[in-house]
Nucleic acid binder design. Structure first.
Length: 403
DNA sequence: AAGCCGGGGTG
DNA sequence: CACCCAGGCTT
């Protein structure tokens, strides 16, 4: 196909630098689709008889939920949480009508909590308009749906001929055409190339399968490290493999170093054994999630005396527990200490509440849960190991605790 | 374009 | 340890 109307007339060499460069052509999609038909992964949100989980036509609600959960989150981590979420909120109406507290509790531990807030807001919008938009542009209007997710839902749930560009597709395309420019800048080269796949008849006939075939290729063969090129349906078409540089692609610009921060949190228990907790501000880090009250996270460590003005109740006998809870965020390393006190029966301070441990602990984000083993007696083992990895053979040492 | 936003799997 | 993951939003 002509790109920028340049295909028909030869371009004089002297003018070439001034004119837009032609978009490189990706390889034929046939081999990838044939490979997908043999080797595709069985996933809970994928239609077909293989799972029985989603018979018949794709359900936009289920596709949407899977795409949002999978944003920067591995398939292994999403699996059990997806089933649980779906059991609790079976359709978009149920999610729209649920209180935020229930949605937050169900999302706790999954991270990127803006996803849960946007999911809830989008459910209300969809329920209000009587169903999901069935075009990429319409989907793009919903909160939490960006360029990638809109294209993914449009292709998988509605059969639109569009190619969502995620980390897998970036890697696959960068290798196929040996694109050496580092990400994220290289995206402006990769996206138009990926889009050209839909010029071919086979992807256009089954867009949902084709884009998921790209995902599966990136997840199982064209992996970030040690790609299995010998098994790749495109092994004869890959320029990076031909040059032997596949393991160094895609290149990435280095990221900034993580900052170090310190916190000190105050855990009060009333005579009934309930815990004094509060909600974090609705935006920002862990926005809208439950936490143990404390002094703000800052550059320098806190002493108990210094942090005391941030204690939720005045006049209690706070005891600083030994040890340090550690949590690594994407852009910050956090060390937290824990002080505890017994409180007399009485109302909670404004913005806080006394909560039963069994209810509260499950709704805490992982960073805050790391404080629990410091309590005396310990309130929990901290974050549970993942259900998909039952025996936890390695890593007998628990994360998040420092002497 | 760059920074913010979680948490876990993996080599 | 470092790197990555079916990214979105804000500045």
């Amino acid at each position: 196909m002509a790109v920028g109307g340049l295909a028909s007339a030869p371009v004089p060499p002297s003018l070439a630098p001034v004119l837009p460069a032609a978009i490189p052509t990706p390889p034929p999609a046939g081999p990838l689709l044939a490979w997908y038909d043999r080797h595709r992964r069985t996933l809970p949100w994928r239609a077909g008889p293989a799972t029985g989980a989603m018979p018949g036509e794709p359900d936009p609600y289920r596709i949407w939920l899977s795409e949002v959960m999978l944003q920067q989150t591995t398939v292994a981590a999403v699996g059990p949480r997806y089933a649980r979420f779906l059991a609790r909120f079976p359709d978009v109406q149920a999610l729209a009508e649920a209180p935020w507290e229930d949605v937050a509790a169900e999302w706790a531990g999954l991270g990127y909590y803006a996803r849960a807030r946007n999911l809830h807001a989008a459910a209300k919008a969809v329920a209000g308009r009587g169903g999901f938009p069935d075009t990429e542009a319409g989907l793009r209007e919903l909160p939490g749906i960006g360029a990638y997710t809109a294209a993914a839902i449009a292709a998988i749930a509605f059969g639109r001929p569009t190619v969502p560009v995620d980390g897998n597709v970036e890697r696959v395309v960068a290798r196929l055409l040996a694109i050496r420019e580092p990400l994220p800048g290289a995206r402006r080269l990769i996206a138009p190339i990926a889009a050209r796949f839909m010029e071919q008849a086979e992807p256009r006939a089954r867009p949902g399968d084709f884009v998921q075939a790209l995902f599966d290729l990136g997840a199982t063969l064209c992996t970030p490290r040690r790609p299995a090129c010998a098994l790749c349906p495109w092994r004869g078409d890959c320029e990076a493999q031909r040059q032997g540089i596949q393991e160094s692609l895609p290149a990435k610009t280095p990221k900034a170093a993580r900052k170090q921060r310190h916190g000190l949190h105050f855990l009060a228990r009333d005579p009934a054994g309930r815990l004094l907790l509060r909600h974090r501000p609705p935006e920002g880090l862990l926005g809208g999630m439950l936490e143990i009250p404390g002094a703000p996270w800052r550059e320098a460590p806190w002493s108990l005396e210094e942090a005391l003005p941030h204690a939720p109740l005045p006049g209690l006998a706070w005891a600083l527990r030994p040890g340090l809870a550690h949590h690594g965020f994407t852009h910050m390393d956090l060390d937290m200490r824990l002080a505890e006190a017994s409180a007399p029966a009485g109302p909670a301070p404004p913005g806080m509440g006394w909560m039963e441990p069994a209810v509260a602990l499950a709704a805490l984000p992982t960073a805050i849960r790391r404080l629990l083993p410091l309590a005396d007696p310990p309130l929990a083992e901290g974050p549970e190991p993942m259900a998909s990895r039952p025996s936890g053979a390695r890593g007998a040492r628990k994360k998040g605790i420092r002497a």
